[in-house]
Design a binder for these strands. Structure first.
Length: 832
RNA sequence: GCUCCAGUGGCGGAAUCGGUAGACGCGUUGGACUUAAAAUCCAAUCGGGUGCAAACUCGGUGCCAGUUCAAGUCUGGCCUGGAGCACCA
């Protein structure tokens, strides 16, 4: 064993061996219980960044820990490899996106191997390869058959920079999630997945996800946005042609229905033209044109002054017989509810603002119990007692909600209604580098799905990537023109491709059966491996990927392809990697290149450091000094072992014997047992790797201290040291994967350290031989006394009371009572 | 506005059940080794007070209350920061 630690040399050596022997291959069949550890797979952008390093290291340590603890662990990796950056790169160099992607995957694969990750590379999945996207297309067809996919013309989010539409989930603050440019509304015919059909179960099943953080669950719940309310239908009294009989509205405040003074429809409301009088037509048209021009950001800004114009027509309130005017205003959203709102200015802040601007009347119907002369300066939106509400007067508004709706139901102008904020998932993209949507448009038969036996619909190669203003795929001569599978006549292929989030919504299933060429996956294999026991990834997917994947799992279950409800049993959302307090990013210039760290310090240092300073869920501040510190620590570990090489014998069978445990009352043996227990518990409880690493340090410090007191080691000491080092190596093996393997090998350990079972501890040895009794007076620490471990409660009390310090302090006082916490503490309550 | 999370030394953070606040590390300071440096090792490091010193003592986990023999931890009310949602009727 070399005296000095040369990580680069060691790491290269072992990586080669692991690679050649396929060391981390996972068999499907095993006597052991299964464990599925998964990181969110990367987009092959070119190089790994520190976020990747953190993500994959966390999952790798978990996978290795579980393996050592007797599980058959599935720990796969793949590539989320469709998407716009490849296409943009291709456009820039007029090259094939596939070449760019392949090169990136090759480079990043090399980096993953340099990090020493224990992947089963035989299960690698690459979403842009036909053997994968064939099944993405196949699954699309299954959902289509189930009626969960449809095409419709709708107001959609258009990103001009990316030249494509976006899903709702991909619009952040009115901007594109990818390129940050402002998103426009466009009316286009697009493909949607009916995720709303699963809104309720997606919400309800969040309760089953006990292994998910509350933050992610509430984010999803908010996004789904379930609300309970009513639909009321208001008869139109003066529709110009008499062809619109009523306007339905959705409200969560049926209790305020007696306070309606006007009604608002969205500018895009379907019947708006029929509800406009000829005199108002011009103003309404202008208003609508103006609304169309506005960006989402402008339109949705809450601090904007509300605007609107009257339509000239009126509705009747069936509860009161009152007639009130119809307006259009862009604060009503066509996509939500019915696209029309009943306005109660006295009890809704938005209606209040609008009514004040246009001098619309107010009618108070809910009385503020603390301030009966309410609604003079602002809307009153809290609970209260109904007034001016006919038969409902005097009732609590919370109770009236139900009764008022019931009346509407009974009299045929209303119904109870549950409403969701979630919209259907827009999945078509006007881009080349994605899975082609397997559909053709026949001149005669209309929309025809591609027959399954014709899959995959391959991406064409005869494409001009330099084209501007349309998808490159449309330039292919061979792609568009095709034959209708039904009638054999001329047909045109769909040129839209699928959102990459469709590809990533099922990849975790494919790992269970990655090489299956006849099916997307074998049902038994998927049922065996899934759900994922531990999923690890960034919080940025809290809604997008995680919601889509949950939906996919449920939809595929309903297609009979699998038998479970939720894909990810436990979710760990790791924090960001920061540098100098800001997220690492190229634009800020505060990135740290993993390659440089590997080169200068080795992967083990990188792994150790990225786990050391913060718990996984919290943000992690990268510091050069911290890396240096971890490197020094590994050197310290190496030195400890290399200078003791002759004193250590790993294959000493005596280490595992009962007699060794019994005869060893050595403090170091106890320290090791305490470390094993602590480290095992810290990993098991929420993967607290930062404290695991502090315990590595404590153990190493303890071994050094122990040795400093023993200039000469006798045979028993050597056995104790061997036990300590062996345990240290195994405990550190999930993190410092190369160093521990090398040391294990050099010290004559059998096989690979990564095949060793985890250390066990003896409960009796995993505690100090004596305890420090804390003595408090009135809750304040006054004395600390070393006592034997086995001392009983009564005796502890006596010891405490007889301590000279305590005697002096309690002298002349009345002892009211004495509380004894076994093996820990005595609190003496005194008076006087 | 609503929802969730967090707040502990100079810094990252630690503290199963309510039971010694500040583990472990970074940084800083002093020292040893060295011609010198690097590396390594040793010591100190929350604040105030008493003391030459060992030591002793008081205060302290965002703020204010409360529960308790005992609160970083539990309860209520605030403050600050972060994240998500948001003219969603």
């Amino acid at each position: 064993m070399k005296e000095n630690y040369f990580p680069q040399e060691i790491e290269k050596k072992w990586q080669k061996i692991w690679d050649e022997t396929n060391a981390f291959k996972t068999p499907d069949e095993s006597d052991k219980p299964k464990y599925y550890a998964l990181s969110m797979f990367p987009y092959p952008s070119g190089k790994l960044h520190m976020g990747h390093v953190r993500n994959y290291t966390i999952t790798d340590v978990i996978a290795r820990f579980k393996k050592a603890n007797g599980f058959n662990v599935l720990h796969p990796i793949g590539w989320d490899s469709f998407g716009l950056p490849a296409e943009n790169a291709a456009m820039k160099h007029n090259a094939d996106p596939e070449t760019w992607t392949d090169e990136n995957i090759a480079y990043m694969t090399k980096q993953l191997k340099m990090l020493g990750l224990s992947y089963d590379w035989d299960r690698e999945v690459t979403t842009c390869k036909p053997d994968y996207y064939k099944w993405t297309q196949w699954l699309f067809l299954q959902l289509y058959k189930k009626g969960l996919v449809y095409k419709k013309e709708a107001a959609v989010n258009w990103c001009d920079e990316c030249g494509t539409v976006l899903a709702n989930e991909q619009v952040i603050d009115g901007k594109c999630w990818r390129c940050d440019s402002v998103v426009e509304k466009k009316y286009l015919s697009q493909w949607f997945i009916k995720i709303t059909e699963y809104a309720d179960v997606l919400l309800e099943d969040l309760d089953k996800l006990t292994g998910w953080g509350e933050n992610v669950k509430t984010m999803q719940a908010n996004w789904i946005g379930k609300s309970h309310g009513a639909i009321f239908k208001f008869p139109v009294v003066d529709s110009p042609n008499g062809d619109v009989k009523e306007v339905p509205v959705y409200t969560t405040r049926p209790d305020t229905v007696f306070g309606i003074t006007y009604l608002v429809v969205a500018p895009e409301y379907g019947d708006i033209e029929k509800l406009t009088t000829p005199e108002n037509k011009q103003a309404v048209e202008e208003y609508r044109a103006n609304a169309r021009k506005m960006t989402e950001i402008e339109r949705l800004s809450t601090d904007r002054v509300k605007t609107g114009v009257p339509l000239g027509t009126h509705c009747k309130n069936p509860f009161t017989g009152e007639i009130f005017p119809l307006w259009t205003a862009d604060y009503a959203l066509v996509e939500y509810g019915t696209g029309a709102v009943m306005a109660v200015p006295t009890h809704d802040t938005r209606d209040w603002d609008f009514a004040h601007k246009y001098n619309l009347p107010l009618k108070v119907v809910i009385q503020n119990p603390e301030n009966p002369s309410n609604c003079e300066n602002e809307a009153y939106t809290d609970e209260g007692i109904l007034i001016n509400s006919g038969e409902f007067n005097g009732m609590k508004n919370t109770e009236a909600k139900k009764l008022i709706t019931q009346k509407a139901v009974d009299e045929g102008f209303g119904e109870f209604k549950t409403q969701y904020r979630l919209r259907d998932w827009l999945i078509s993209r006007q881009r080349y580098w994605g899975a082609p949507i397997p559909v053709v448009y026949c001149d005669k038969c209309g929309i025809v799905p591609v027959p399954e036996e014709q899959l995959p619909v391959m991406l064409p190669k005869d494409v001009d990537f330099k084209v501007v203003g349309k998808s490159p795929i449309t330039t292919s001569q061979t792609f568009k023109d095709t034959v209708c599978p039904v009638c054999g006549g001329h047909a045109t292929r769909e040129t839209d491709t699928m959102d990459t989030f469709v590809c990533s919504s099922w990849y975790y299933l494919r790992y269970a059966d990655a090489k299956n060429s006849g099916k997307c996956f074998d049902k038994d294999k998927v049922n065996h491996w899934l759900p994922v026991d531990q999923y690890v990834g960034g919080i940025e997917h809290a809604i997008l990927h995680l919601l889509y994947s949950r939906f996919f799992t449920k939809a595929l279950r309903d297609c009979g392809l699998l038998d479970f409800d939720e894909p990810f049993k436990n979710l760990l959302t790791q924090g960001m990697v920061l540098k100098d307090g800001a997220k690492m990013s190229k634009s800020k210039g505060n990135t740290v290149d993993p390659d440089e760290i590997f080169e200068n310090y080795g992967a083990d240092t990188a792994r150790l450091f990225i786990l050391s300073d913060s718990p996984p869920a919290r943000d992690f501040d990268w510091s050069d000094a911290g890396v240096e510190g971890c490197y020094k620590f590994l050197n310290r570990v190496w030195r400890l072992i290399s200078t003791n090489q002759d004193n250590i014998s790993l294959c000493d069978s005596g280490l595992d014997s009962e007699s060794f445990k019994d005869k060893s009352n050595d403090d170091l043996v106890r320290t090791v047992h305490i470390a094993i227990k602590g480290i095992t518990n810290d990993i098991s409880n929420d993967f607290q790797f930062n404290t695991v690493i502090s315990k590595y340090r404590e153990l190493v410090n303890a071994i050094y201290d122990w040795q400093a007191k023993k200039p000469q080691l006798n045979d028993e000491d050597k056995q104790v040291l061997s036990f300590a080092i062996k345990s240290l190596l195994i405990l550190m093996s999930p993190v410092a994967v190369h160093l521990t393997e090398e040391a294990w090998h050099e010290l004559g350990g059998a096989g690979s350290i990564h095949e060793q079972p985890w250390c066990e501890w003896d409960e009796n040895l995993a505690k100090a031989s004596s305890i420090t009794l804390v003595v408090q007076i009135n809750g304040k620490v006054k004395d600390k006394i070393e006592v034997d471990e086995g001392v009983g409660d009564e005796e502890l009390k006596t010891i405490a009371l007889e301590s000279p310090k305590i005697k002096a302090l309690t002298d002349g006082m009345t002892i009211v009572k004495t509380i004894v916490v076994p093996k820990k503490l005595v609190n003496i309550v005194v008076k006087g």
